Simulated assay, not measured.
Amino acid sequence: MTLVLPHADLHTRTAHLAALPPDERRRRATEAARDKDAGTLWLLAEAYLTLHGEAGALLSAHTRRSYRTGVRLFVAHAGAGAWNLLRPERDLAQTWVNELLLRQGRSIGTVRSRVAAAALLYRALRWAGATQATPFEDVVLPRDRRHPLEKNPPYSEAVLERVYARLRAGTEAAPPRTRTRWLQTRLLVLLLAHSGLRIQEALDLTWADVDLTELDLTVRSGKGRRSRLVPLTPPLAHALRAARLLPRRRTHRGDRVFSFRDRASAAYHVAPLFAQEDGDGGTDWRGFHAFRKAMGSRLYEELGDFVAVAEVLGHADVNTTRGYVRVGHRRAKRAMGTWGGSGEG
């Protein structure tokens, strides 16, 4: 028996679980854990996350999906290994982590995400009174010592110029029925590369947030629901003015600048633009965050001010911004490029 209808809205799902008598919530959670019912266990974890998580009901849809995927994969592993979820043996959690790292070759970042989801599930089971187990409390995860730019480098100017050229050519050649979608894709790429918005911030942008007089964007949907002003570059302002004049059909997106339903829909149109020119199937596509790193790196190169870059990108901690630039390497390269000596020839 499921805890609550899974297709109800988030508030209804959470309110239903919160209103259950403690004994009934414990009974249903216990049954779900016994049966390895991933769907019901996720509903329980989601309710706990919404009621007691730091972001609560304002947690981003992307983070929520990540937790959901992690819970589903963990429960599948527990089922395959015949775990007793409510009374797990002491070293099973660490064994699973080691398997992800060594046998499956998952990145440290991915494993951290999976462990976070599994730990969330156990917090939810404890909240429901189904167990007191804390199997992930002492799990050891190695530190990822790679520089953030090694894990997901920013797009280079050469790659972005190639993408811009493909967008121009595609827009000019597009028949009327697909021209609007080409223009939207072109605007999205330019927006991400020139403003550094997170992809969800870009998709949530409304025309009311675009000030073409003061040349600013008001970004309201960042992490923690903070708002910030982001300046418009001249090319981006020009593209937004042109897009503002296009006829718009009424859709479920309302007054939003983009008609893409979600990041998967946007990626469907953007990712093919990054195919490499040699035709062997290679691609330079590294996701939407590489746009953000490219913009942050470029802005720091011009400003030399981490605080200013952090404000534009919406980073609460300037140390996050530092991960976008190899400051020491760049400075050393500039300095060493001026060295002379007698070693020539």
Rank of each mutant, 00 (worst) to 15 (best):
P135D: 00
A93W: 09
V97A: 13
V71C: 01
D144P: 14
P142F: 05
R68L: 14
D138A: 12
V71I: 09
E137K: 13
D138F: 13
E137T: 09
T134H: 11
G129R: 06
Q94V: 11
H77T: 14
P135G: 12
D138Q: 15
G81T: 05
V97Y: 01
A124S: 10
R65S: 08
T134N: 01
L121Q: 11
A133F: 07
D91M: 06
W127M: 07
A80C: 12
L160M: 10
V111T: 12
H147A: 09
L149T: 14
D91I: 04
L141C: 05
D144N: 10
T69L: 09
A118I: 10
T63H: 09
R68I: 06
Q94Y: 08
R87S: 08
A93L: 10
V75I: 06
D144C: 02
D144A: 10
A61E: 11
G79P: 03
R72Y: 12
A76N: 04
V140D: 11
R103S: 11
P88V: 08
V139T: 09
G109V: 04
S156N: 09
L86W: 03
Y122F: 12
E137F: 00
E157A: 15
P148R: 06
L141K: 12
L120K: 00
R103Y: 07
A124E: 07
R146E: 12
F74D: 04
F74W: 06
H62M: 10
D144M: 05
T69N: 00
N152I: 03
R68V: 07
E89P: 13
L149W: 08
A78R: 13
W127T: 01
A118Y: 06
W127N: 01
F136K: 02
R64L: 15
G105A: 11
D138I: 10
F136D: 07
A133M: 00
A128T: 03
S113T: 13
E99H: 15
P135M: 06
W96N: 05
Y67H: 15
L100N: 15
P148G: 08
T95E: 00
P142Y: 13
Q94P: 04
H62W: 10
D91N: 06
P148K: 14
L141D: 06
R87C: 10
G105F: 03
G79A: 14
R87N: 15
G105L: 12
V97Q: 15
P88A: 14
F74M: 09
E99A: 13
E89Y: 08
R90M: 00
N152Y: 03
P135E: 02
T131W: 05
V97R: 09
R126E: 11
A76Q: 11
V75M: 04
G129C: 02
Y155K: 05
P88E: 15
V75W: 08
R123N: 12
S107C: 03
V159F: 04
L92D: 13
Q104Y: 02
R143D: 02
R112L: 02
S66P: 01
A78Y: 08
N84K: 14
R126M: 02
R72C: 00
L120R: 00
L160R: 00
V75L: 09
R106L: 14
G129T: 03
V139K: 01
P142K: 03
P142W: 09
W96M: 04
R64T: 12
D144I: 01
A119C: 06
L141P: 15
S66W: 07
A117G: 03
A116W: 08
L149P: 02
H147K: 07
R145E: 02
L121G: 09
A82P: 08
A118Q: 05
A117T: 07
